[in-house]
Design a protein around this nucleic acid. Structure first.
Length: 1000
RNA sequence: GGGUGGUUAGCUCAGUUGGUAGAGCGCUUCGUUUACACCGAAGAUGUCGGGGGUUCGAGUCCCUCACCACCCACCA
């Protein structure tokens, strides 16, 4: 059955992929040579929230190219796939679904909610895998990993030990004091009601106002406020003021003000330092403190301090001993009622009014009320429109609130050094190198990493709390009970899944002795029979009270229990994905895969997650197993739309990779992305370009089709050994194949993906299809050369398929498996190693001469409007020995491709003929009656003009003695040769023109 | 405010140690010669953002200016 004219990608791709998968082609170590070196790549795990976009298509194409290339080269190759649980993003998706049903997560128990998220995860994971399969990704699906595998509540089919790894790392770092809990100001997302890290905050330029407020000085104090200045800017007149003017963009935070800062050297205010001002509305006394944070040149030089709601103020407060008063709820509404810290020191009249007006009110509503009230009461000193940056949550898109809460932190400053050193000393290389600077800058200025999130979906923090009490007292101590951090839970023989004991409260005593901080070593002696896990602190107090009451009656010490409860927070997603390299390979178990494939060879990722992920993986792997996670990090750019805009859902310019694959086939999409993957530059994707590479697939398809029609594949067995043909054309193309192979390997080894793709494109289309196939036609028709040409062409096309396969796996595999006799699928074919020794210099020179002559004749014919179908005789005016040999060897090819019917010698270019200059010779095409002389004159004149322009430049250079002296010899030599050649050609053209002039 | 990258043909972009500019698309002309019209042949188009410097020689190295993009940090 003859081949179709085009490759049916839609039909073939799924079939081919399924066969690869069934035959285990992707498995770790598949096609590895004995004793092969390992090559491993970890996929950047996509979020389980949704669909893959073009960035994923790009990223995974590059990974697949490297993977397939190494697999064919016989490396022990692993491409590790998997997905990330993406805490906040995934929880958001599920909460949105619930919202559509009119519910919130609070309507469910935590366990039920988490079960629902697992369902979402299972569904989405299938989508992601399906999309990667459409793209042709050859990852080892049998090893598919998930950053929350093995976590409590995981449904069947989600086993694995990633959770163990995460918990163990938390415990280990906790033991080393690298993880700590603290009441700190954090970035608080009032929508999700959770802390987020610095990286999850994006600054958004927002229209706002700067309000100036007057704060009365206490105790009749005044200061001299300058009201007039001389020309040098020195004050000349003053007025005594009994108030300070402070400015703010967020008036609602004033309720948390506890001080006013002035610069220690500001002469206006030095006498006020240590004195007090009075907060409007509620009459709280504000301490006036000296701190260099206050800039005398800004505003009035006096700054109000709200340590609980501003990061800078918090820092000043730490230095100067200001109290931090939280005045907001987790949803960023005002929290004034039942807020003892807030009420302390306030005037009753003010308190009553403010609570009535503002308690429970949203922060922005509260702002309006305060501004209106200030205006009405005369302590608003004015306002200006002000455009400034406001921090927003990157997921929720609401303004984040600096908020005072208990959170867990990684003391990153203490683990950052090895991550810096590894890149500095080159153990890990970052490409393109410019990204190293960004990496260094961030790590050198690293801040503590807030890793706790007030979410339900994620790894729950493995820390339990208990009550700080006298356990042997028979009654509850008076007053509130402090809680005490009991530490991370760890058994001597390894990790205990938190989930194993989550509901087994009665068994909890059995593991109590294994507490990291042993019960017996708690600050106060405990003498209890059992440790019981309860929901929270409130439940713990109740349970303890009941236990003690029971004991009081029964006097039975076995009734005494010690209630503990677990930290409700989960870990930042990036804490677990930061362990992706070791976690996917089975750590903390010492698996063969871990020993084999770690450290991994290369990480392919986008620049947008260098901080989020790459830097954290570096720090964490080095901190945990003291090894670099990867030898090379290749950072690729962004895929944009054809106008250069970032693709985003809100702009509606998103190109779905699946749609493109439907339209053009996966190979075309992959080739397009690869050809545009120049290091460090964003790529603009357009459908025209993809169509062009789809056409490229058709081109190679049809070259194979030509081969098939000419019996090239008959009796063809795959062999990697190049043939040793005798015909010049065949010798020539073998050398061209070798050049292409060297170029591809060199490009891929240097991560120059675009060079590899473009080089192959030029080779396959420009050399093989445009010239070799055309040359082969007469050779195949000639019995003397037919056999070796068939053999050579089969080999050449095989090499094209092999070299193209990493970039366009489907069409190449299809051609491979439907032609000749193949012992292995192409995905496992042996990558060639032949090199420059296959290049035959004589054949090279000869074929270049032939090609140049054909092009020259074609060009002349086209410009003279010679009918394409018209065959012409060619006149040989003069030709050197090399030229004669080349002609004699290839006369049939030249005549066919240049449409020449005969060659005869002539002494000179006759009247009515056009001149054809060739290296080492001169030809003429008699065109009497076909062309007009003026047109030929114009053609020659134009060519000559160009030549002479070149010659002027060359002559100028060579006549400059400094050039001949300083330039390298080979450059001078090359210039001389070029000059001689052009001079020769110009001479011929001048002669031809002169003759034409005579004739005219 | 600090930093990074970019500015090359009409469009999108390559251009690896400095040796005299390329590709794809688009455009023009011609063409269905037994692989391919998702094709073939031929052709036009660039003071390589501006200015200065180093050099025999600069798209490439240095300085400077302009504009664009992105990242980081924020001024109450």
């Amino acid at each position: 059955m003859p081949m179709e004219k085009t490759f049916d990608a839609a039909e073939a791709e799924a079939r081919i992929y399924a066969r690869w998968d069934q035959d285990g082609c992707f498995a770790a170590g598949a096609n590895a040579r004995p004793g092969a070196d390992p090559f491993s790549i970890m996929i950047p795990p996509p979020n389980v929230t949704g669909a893959l976009h073009m960035g994923h298509a790009f990223n995974n194409t590059l990974q697949d190219i490297l993977t397939r290339w190494h697999r064919m080269r016989g490396f022990d190759t692993l491409w590790q796939p998997g997905t990330d649980h993406a805490g906040i993003a995934t929880q958001m998706v599920v909460e949105r679904e619930l919202a559509a049903e009119g519910k919130s997560r609070r309507d469910f128990s935590r366990d039920d909610f988490v079960a629902r998220v697992w369902q979402q995860k299972v569904k989405s994971r299938g989508n992601i895998r399906g999309q990667l399969e459409r793209l042709g990704a050859s990852c080892d699906w049998s090893r598919e990993a998930f950053t929350m595998s093995g976590a409590p509540g995981a449904p069947e089919g989600e086993e694995g030990n990633f959770h163990d790894a995460v918990i163990k790392v938390f415990v280990d770092l906790y033991d080393k004091g690298l993880i700590y809990r603290g009441k700190r100001l954090v970035n608080w997302d009032p929508h999700f009601e959770t802390a987020i890290s610095d990286l999850e905050v994006e600054q958004v330029e927002t229209d706002g106002h700067m309000w100036r407020l007057r704060y009365q000085l206490a105790d009749g104090l005044t200061y001299d406020h300058p009201t007039a200045f001389d020309e040098d800017g020195n004050p000349t007149e003053y007025e005594a003021r009994d108030y300070l003017t402070v400015a703010t963009t967020r008036p609602e935070t004033m309720l948390g003000d506890t001080g006013i800062a002035v610069h220690p050297d500001d002469p206006r205010y030095t006498h006020l330092v240590g004195k007090e001002a009075i907060l409007p509305l509620i009459g709280r006394r504000l301490k006036i403190v000296a701190d260099s944070y206050a800039d005398p040149d800004k505003g009035t030089g006096a700054v109000k301090m709200t340590p609980a709601h501003d990061f800078n103020d918090w820092a000043v407060g730490e230095r100067t001993g200001l109290q931090a008063i939280n005045v907001m709820t987790p949803r960023a509404a005002m929290w004034l009622k039942d807020n003892a810290d807030f009420a302390e020191g306030c005037e009753d009249w003010g308190l009553t009014r403010v609570i009535q007006a503002l308690d429970g009110l949203d922060r922005y509503k509260a702002r309006e009320w305060i501004v209106e009230t200030a205006d009405a009461e005369g302590w608003l000193d004015g306002m200006d429109a002000d455009r400034h940056m406001v921090p927003h949550g990157d997921r929720s898109k609401v303004a984040i609130e600096p908020y005072l809460t208990d959170q867990w932190f990684v003391d990153t400053a203490r683990i950052v050094q090895p991550a810096l050193d590894a890149v500095r000393d080159g153990r890990t290389k970052i490409l393109p190198e410019q990204h190293e600077k960004v990496y260094f800058h961030w790590l050198e200025n690293i801040e503590p990493w807030c890793i706790s999130r007030q979410l339900w979906w994620g790894h729950q923090i493995p820390v339990w709390y208990g009550l700080n009490m006298w356990a042997d007292s028979a009654t509850l101590p008076a007053g509130d009970l402090d809680e005490v951090d009991l530490g991370a839970l760890l058994l001597d023989d390894g990790i205990v899944h938190a989930g194993d004991h989550h509901h087994a409260a009665t068994d909890f005593g059995a593991v109590a002795k294994a507490f990291h901080k042993d019960i017996a070593s708690l600050p106060q002696p405990l003498n209890v029979a059992r440790v019981v896990e309860v929901e929270d602190k409130h439940a713990a107090i109740e349970a303890l009270a009941a236990s003690l009451a029971d004991y009081a009656v029964s006097q039975d010490p076995t009734h005494l229990i010690y209630p503990v409860w677990r930290d409700a927070d989960v870990l930042d997603t990036w804490f677990s994905s930061g362990l992706w390299p070791i976690g996917t390979l089975g750590w903390p178990e010492d698996t063969p895969e871990l020993r084999r494939y770690f450290p991994t060879s290369v990480l392919i990722t986008g620049f947008d997650i260098i901080f989020f992920w790459v830097a954290r993986m570096m720090m964490m792997q080095l901190a945990v197993v003291n090894q670099i996670p990867f030898h090379t990090v290749y950072v690729h750019a962004l895929v944009r739309d054809e106008k250069g805009k970032k693709m985003s859902k809100s702009l509606g310019n998103v190109l779905d990779p699946l749609d493109l694959i439907d339209d053009f086939g996966a190979d075309a999409v992959r080739f397009t992305l690869t050809s545009m993957a120049a290091m460090g530059r964003d790529l603009k994707l357009s459908k025209d370009r993809i169509a062009g590479y789809r056409n490229f697939g058709t081109k190679i398809w049809n070259a194979a089709r030509f081969a098939e029609m000419n019996g090239v594949w008959e009796n063809h067995a795959t062999h990697i050994t190049p043939p040793r043909p005798t015909a010049t054309v065949n010798r020539w193309i073998v050398g061209e194949v070798a050049r292409a192979r060297l170029a591809v390997d060199e490009a891929l080894a240097a991560y120059r993906f675009n060079d590899a793709a473009n080089g192959l494109y030029a080779f396959v289309w420009g050399k093989v299809c445009d010239w070799y196939v055309e040359f082969a036609k007469p050779l195949l028709a000639d019995e003397a050369t037919a056999a070796e040409t068939r053999e050579t062409m089969a080999w050449v096309l095989d090499q094209c398929l092999i070299l193209l396969h990493p970039i366009m796996p489907f069409v190449t595999e299809e051609l491979w498996s439907t032609t000749g006799h193949r012992p292995k699928p192409l995905i496992w074919a042996d990558w060639p190693t032949y090199g420059a020794d296959l290049i035959d210099a004589d054949a090279d020179r000869e074929m270049n001469w032939v090609i140049a002559l054909i092009e020259e004749i074609r060009s002349a014919r086209a410009q003279m409007h010679v009918p394409v179908g018209l065959k012409l005789p060619l006149l040989r005016i003069e030709l050197d020995a090399a030229g004669r040999a080349a002609w004699d060897n290839n006369a049939a090819l030249i005549q066919r491709l240049a449409r020449i019917d005969s060659l005869t010698d002539a002494p000179s270019v006759p009247k009515g003929a056009i001149t054809i200059a060739a290296e080492g010779g001169l030809f003429a095409l008699p065109l009497e009656g076909v062309i007009d002389i003026a047109a030929e004159q114009a053609r020659l004149a134009k060519t000559l003009e160009k030549l002479e322009k070149d010659l002027t430049g060359l002559r100028g250079r060579l006549s400059n003695p400094k050039f001949v002296e300083s330039a390298p010899e080979d450059v001078v030599e090359e210039t001389r040769d070029l000059m001689a050649q052009k001079d020769d050609e110009a001479g011929k053209l001048r002669a031809a023109l002169a003759r034409l002039a005579e004739l005219a």
